[in-house]
């Protein structure tokens, strides 16, 4: 009750002032410090409300949902790509595991083949050696037989030579012929000692 008329008066006063001021304000700024000129406030507030209000509505209705959508689509896409990458990695891991298993199998097989080859080679070598050894044995026996034969012939030759020599010596010393039978018996007797 008390304030209202006073305010109304003041409002009238400022409104009146505005009119006088606009005439002067064209040339310089007689009205004082511009931010404190109360008569400019209604206009500024109204236009701020209009512009900021429209700006708010525009951002809220159009721009922000759009940016949010863009960001959401992107994060979805990234998640999807990550999923796919994980799946691919799994596949790759499985392939690596299969490969390694195959490799191990192949290695095992190779080892088996090598072992087999080694065994055959060893068996063959052993057989060969046995064959060679038996050949050597027979040759050795043959050689021994021949040596024995040669020795026998040599020994029998020794008897004949000794007889002839003894006959020759006796003939030289005694001067008479010695009976061949007694001579060979004597040589045999010496040989047997």
């Amino acid at each position: 009750m008390f304030v209202a008329p006073a305010f109304a008066q003041e409002a009238d006063h400022t409104a009146g002032e505005t009119h006088t001021e606009t005439g002067v304000a064209e040339g310089g700024h007689e009205g004082g410090f511009p931010p404190f000129l109360v008569e400019t406030y209604p206009s500024q507030l109204l236009w701020l409300a209009i512009t900021f209000g429209l700006f708010y509505l525009f951002l809220k209705r159009v721009v922000l949902p759009r940016i949010a959508g863009i960001l959401e689509v992107r994060s979805d896409r990234i998640a999807q790509d990550l999923d796919q990458a994980a799946r691919m990695k799994e596949d790759a891991d499985a392939a690596v595991a299969a490969y390694e298993q195959e490799l191990a199998e192949a290695r095992k097989k190779a080892a088996a083949i090598a072992q087999e080859a080694r065994d055959t080679a060893k068996a063959e070598a052993a057989a060969e050696r046995r064959k060679v050894e038996s050949g050597l044995d027979s040759k050795l026996k043959e050689a021994e037989a021949r040596i024995a034969l040669i020795k026998d012939t040599a020994l029998s030759d020794v008897g004949t030579i000794a007889e002839e020599t003894a006959a020759a010596i006796v003939q030289e010393l005694v001067g008479g012929k010695v009976d061949k039978a007694s001579l060979s018996a004597a040589v045999k007797a010496v040989q047997q000692q």
């Binding site: 409002a11 009238d12 409104a15 505005t18 008569e39 400019t40 209604p42 206009s43 500024q44 109204l46 236009w47 701020l48 512009t51 900021f52 429209l54 700006f55 525009f58 951002l59 721009v63």
Partner: peptide
């Protein structure tokens, strides 16, 4: 009785909103 004129301030409010928007 109140002055709601479109001023240079209003113009730049519009410019601000228009540029940002």
């Amino acid at each position: 009785g109140l002055d709601f004129s479109f001023t240079n301030s209003s113009l730049f409010m519009v410019a601000t909103v228009a540029a940002a928007g």
